[in-house]
Computed example of a mutant assay.
Amino acid sequence: MKLLILGGTAWLGHQTAAAAVSAGHEVTCAARGTSGKPPAGAAFLQIDRDADDGLASAADRHWDAVIDVSRQPGQVRRAVRGLRGAADFYVFVSTGNVYASQREWGQDEDAALLAPLTDDVMGSMENYGPAKVACEQAVTEGFGSGSRAIVRSGLIGGPGDTSGRSGYWPLRFARGGRVLVPDVPRQPTQLIDVRDLAQWLVQVAEERTAGVFNAVGDTVPFAEHLEAAAAVAGPPGVAAVAVPAPARWLREQDVNEWSGPRSLALWLEDPDWHGMNARSNARARQAGLQLRPLRQTLADTLAWEEAAGVARPRGAGLTQAEESELLALLDAVGAGLSGK
Rank of each mutant, 00 (worst) to 15 (best):
R32A: 05
L197S: 10
A278T: 05
E257Q: 13
A282R: 13
L226N: 11
S147N: 14
S145V: 11
E136Q: 03
G164D: 05
E224P: 02
G13R: 06
L12P: 02
P271H: 09
E252Y: 04
R292Y: 04
A112R: 14
E227H: 14
V241E: 13
I67F: 10
V80G: 03
R262W: 03
P271S: 04
S22I: 05
A112K: 13
G7K: 00
A31G: 13
A332I: 01
I67W: 06
T162W: 12
Q72A: 03
S70K: 04
G288K: 03
V232A: 09
L6C: 03
E207M: 14
H14R: 14
G142Y: 02
A307S: 14
T209R: 12
V184H: 10
E252G: 08
D218W: 06
R103A: 13
S94H: 10
G144A: 01
G260F: 04
S35T: 15
R262L: 02
K132H: 15
N281L: 00
V232Q: 10
C29W: 00
L4K: 02
A79G: 08
A265G: 05
V21M: 02
R292F: 08
V184Y: 03
D218L: 07
A51S: 13
L294E: 09
V93C: 14
V220Q: 04
F173D: 01
T209I: 11
S124A: 02
A240I: 10
T28I: 09
A149E: 01
D193A: 03
D48N: 14
L201T: 00
P130F: 13
L268C: 09
Q203G: 14
P221V: 14
T162G: 02
P236Y: 12
V69Q: 14
A134F: 05
P185E: 10
W11I: 10
T209G: 08
G123A: 13
R152P: 09
M276L: 11
V93A: 07
P271W: 07
W11Y: 12
A138H: 05
Q286D: 11
H25D: 13
T209Q: 10
V310T: 12
E206F: 11
V243Y: 03
S94F: 08
R84Y: 00
P293S: 05
A229F: 15
W105S: 06
I47N: 03
R148H: 15
G54P: 10
W11L: 05
W249M: 00
F143S: 04
A10Q: 12
A223S: 15
F213I: 06
D50E: 09
R312T: 11
V194L: 03
A79Q: 12
L6A: 03
A174R: 14
G123D: 15
A31E: 13
V69H: 15
A138D: 06
T189Y: 07
Q253V: 04
N281P: 01
H14E: 05
G315H: 07
Q199K: 12
A112V: 07
T118F: 02
R312W: 00
Q290I: 09
L327Q: 00
T319A: 09
F213A: 06
Q253F: 07
A308C: 07
A56H: 05
L291H: 08
S57I: 14
R195L: 10
P271F: 05
A131M: 08
A111C: 09
G74R: 07
A20R: 02
A230N: 00
R195I: 10
V93T: 15
A58V: 11
V91Y: 03
L191K: 08
Q72V: 00
A58E: 06
G315S: 05
